[in-house]
Write a protein that binds this DNA or RNA. Structure first.
Length: 493
RNA sequence: GGUCGGGUGGCCGAGUGGCUAGGCAGAGGUCUGCAAAACCUUUUACAGCGGUUCGAAUCCGCUUCCGACCUCCA
């Protein structure tokens, strides 16, 4: 069994903009925090890609034998939707539009979020804290930053003093921006008279009289600013310094930059060792986003109900499709691309099925150890799933050679090969063979099809091709494909 | 406007100073009652122009096109 002790895992750290050898703070244990969704609408496929990227990282760390505490928050206090001054948050706005309680919105889309991620076979995090569940902790963090002198109250709201902070620390270490530069390029937003400097950000906002979501605090009845919850919840569950913090590329600035500032203001040291950013999923060459309306929903991919899709695709195919691109690369969604991925996915899965039926031989004619090493090398190199998949397809070629008896493997190598293929395909990439559609009735259906295949093959033996073709055609119409091989007829649906 | 990233064969998508990424499609073959499927083999590339180098798609410069962030966003 391969463990982290045998591996040099390299991770691309956004702080240094290069790959670094991963050394956790505590040997054998990893603390990982990922920014979760704001639950004010359905997650789109781009959101799923980000969470999938971190699911793979989580799975691979587990595979290497690390004990991982994976924390992913639910943002159920909306970030500000308009200018700071308007102070109406996303969830409150949506609630008014739909005539619902804010928490009703939160509940609906949290359930949707969980449902989708489960369908796409993402492992649940160890802890999934909510912003509303940590209001007291957030208030404490804000007070602590005030006490340290890096925040000030103004008219019931509390702002982080970026300029003051930048005198003692370095604001911009993550996004590699220069504060003065940021200053020059900050837009002059209206009504920011409460703030000392334009680039200061809110830690607490006083609520307008009509604002629905509000909590009492030492400063006013209001709600926390948009970066506070992540600092609060990550440090509560992972400590004041932890290993990995992830999120979408679009959160790098200002969200993650502000988290660093808040963390350092509190403790005097950076909160996170490795910052990871997953790149965007685009549609028509443009980033998917709820606000622009340029997006496709995961449910639409599963049902095929979207104009850009020619058919429905299973969750596993979608997963496989996304994993053919490295998580740091921009990926464009298109029907042709996912269609091509589906073919490859099916070939891989068929080979996995064949593999389970192959008998070992006396000696090995394939270099399994070398192949296995290449698979691990790929994942050790910043979780390079596309390279891993290319090696898995080499494994598919191996399997077919073994099936055709043009290659053999010793019992030991055979076991090793099966275990490695299965670990990567099922455990690390999280692909599953189970049909998403016929769950529960599979055995009855399979038995029935087998019976029809028997009858058809009898008809073929009797040279009654009218009947045999009739059976085949009717099954094809039902979406059940028969595959004749030399020895047997198999089927898939 | 500022900061940053990218333009790879018909499509998707890795990678790298000299050695086949991979998938899909295409071509040839095996198998087959037929068809399909499956399997085996296989062609095509690095945006443009300069420069560095024995050698660059890979490094440098310029041009051009695209994207992300700078404002809520995975």
């Amino acid at each position: 069994m391969s463990t982290y002790k045998d591996h040099t895992l390299k991770i691309y750290n956004s702080l240094s903009n290069q790959k670094e050898i991963f050394i956790p703070i505590q040997e054998g244990r990893v603390g990982m925090y990922v920014c979760g969704p704001t639950v004010y609408s359905k997650v789109h496929l781009g959101n799923v890609r980000t969470f999938l990227s971190f699911d793979i990282i989580y799975r691979y760390l587990l595979h290497l034998g690390y004990k991982v505490r994976y924390v992913r928050n639910i943002t159920d206090v909306g970030h500000l939707v308009d200018d700071m001054d308007n102070g109406e948050d996303k969830i409150a706005k949506k609630a008014r539009l739909e005539q619902l309680e804010p928490m009703e919105i939160v509940q609906r889309y949290t359930v949707d979020f969980h449902d989708i991620l489960q369908k796409f076979n993402l492992l649940p995090p160890s802890i999934e804290p909510t912003a509303t569940g940590h209001m007291i902790e957030q208030i404490n963090v804000i007070q602590h930053i005030i006490d340290k002198g890096y925040a000030y109250e103004s008219n019931g709201s509390v702002y982080f003093d970026v300029v003051k902070y930048n005198e003692d620390y370095d604001y911009g270490v993550l996004s590699h921006r220069d504060l003065m530069h940021t200053l020059d390029n900050s837009r002059a937003l209206d009504g920011q008279s409460d703030k000392r400097n334009e680039q200061d950000f809110a830690l607490w906002k006083r609520a307008d009289p009509h604002h629905i979501m509000r909590w009492p605090s030492p400063w006013s009845e209001g709600f926390p600013g948009w970066h506070t919850e992540c600092t609060t919840m990550s440090t509560k569950y992972l400590g004041q310094r932890f290993d990995i913090h992830g999120g979408g590329m679009d959160l790098k600035f200002p969200h993650h930059e502000c988290e660093i500032a808040q963390g350092e203001a509190c403790t005097g040291h950076p909160p996170v060792n490795y910052w990871l950013h997953a790149n965007m999923l685009t549609l028509n060459g443009k980033k998917m986003s709820k606000s622009s309306g340029n997006y496709i929903l995961p449910g639409e991919v599963l049902s095929g109900e979207n104009p850009v899709l020619s058919k429905a695709f299973s969750a596993s195919v979608t997963r496989f499709f996304m994993l053919q691109t490295h998580y740091r690369g921009i990926m464009d969604f298109s029907n042709d691309a996912i269609l091509a991925a589906e073919k490859g996915y099916e070939r891989l899965m068929k080979a996995m099925d064949v593999l389970s039926k192959i008998e070992p031989g006396n000696k090995s004619t394939l270099d399994i150890a070398g192949w296995e090493a290449k698979c691990y090398e790929a994942m050790d190199d910043d979780f390079n799933t596309p390279i891993l998949i290319s090696h898995l397809f080499e494994g598919v070629t191996f399997i077919n050679h073994l099936k055709d008896k043009t290659a053999t493997l010793s019992t030991t190598d055979m076991e090793r090969f099966c275990k490695t293929m299965s670990s990567f395909v099922f455990d690390v990439l999280g692909l599953e063979v189970k049909s998403d559609v016929y769950n529960g009735q599979v055995e009855k259906l399979d038995g029935t099809i087998s019976l029809l295949i028997e009858m058809r093959n009898q008809a073929r033996a009797d040279r009654n091709f009218t009947l045999s073709d009739q059976i085949r055609n009717r099954l094809t119409e039902l979406g059940i494909k028969l595959n004749d091989t030399k020895d047997e007829t198999t089927f898939n649906y």
